[in-house]
């Protein structure tokens, strides 16, 4: 995390002094690679949590019902969620699943675990069109041929 911040800040300062009209130069390949690695680390952590019974108390995991994050539909949030009774964000829905089917303790919205779960779910739906509020036909996640579904 720190490495990336340093890189981004570095490029920012350089760009401000070097060129006024183009306030920031594009990220270098190296910058992009590091940032992507940081994201994938979080995705990996989310993948582990998603497949771990420790979020709940009845042995179930998120993956019991959502193989490859299928049917999590992050592309449709926020939306009115009948089982929550109001417009819910993806994080609200993650917590609902932890509380009801998994019989676990809800996570703080800004916790590292919540961010990791969210990162994994979003990443498995990369490239999908955003459709906030859509409660019609769900779109499947990316089609995975082998491996965990991310690089």
């Amino acid at each position: 995390m720190r490495v990336v911040k340093f890189f981004v800040m570095g490029s920012l300062i350089l760009s401000v002094s070097a060129n006024f009209s183009l306030s920031k130069p594009p990220f270098t390949e190296e910058d992009l690679k590091l940032m992507h690695e940081e994201l994938i680390n979080l995705v990996k952590k989310g993948d582990e949590l998603f497949h771990s019974p420790k979020l709940g108390t009845n042995g179930l995991t998120c993956a019991n019902c959502h193989p490859d994050a299928a049917f999590t539909n992050p592309d449709t949030f926020p939306k009115f969620q009948p089982n929550v009774g109001e417009v819910a964000t993806l994080r609200d829905m993650i917590n609902w699943c932890i509380k009801i089917p998994l019989k676990g303790k809800m996570l703080a919205h800004d916790s590292e675990e919540m961010k990791a779960l969210e990162a994994y779910i979003y990443y498995m739906y990369r490239g999908r069109t955003l459709k906030p509020g859509d409660n019609t036909a769900p779109v499947p996640p990316v089609k995975v041929d082998s491996g965990p579904g991310y690089p």
Binding site: N64, C65, H66, P67, A70, F71, P140, V142, K143
Partner: peptide, 9 residues
């Protein structure tokens, strides 16, 4: 036990 979602095919 529980339903599986339809796969992406």
């Amino acid at each position: 036990a529980w339903p599986w979602p339809y796969p992406p095919v």
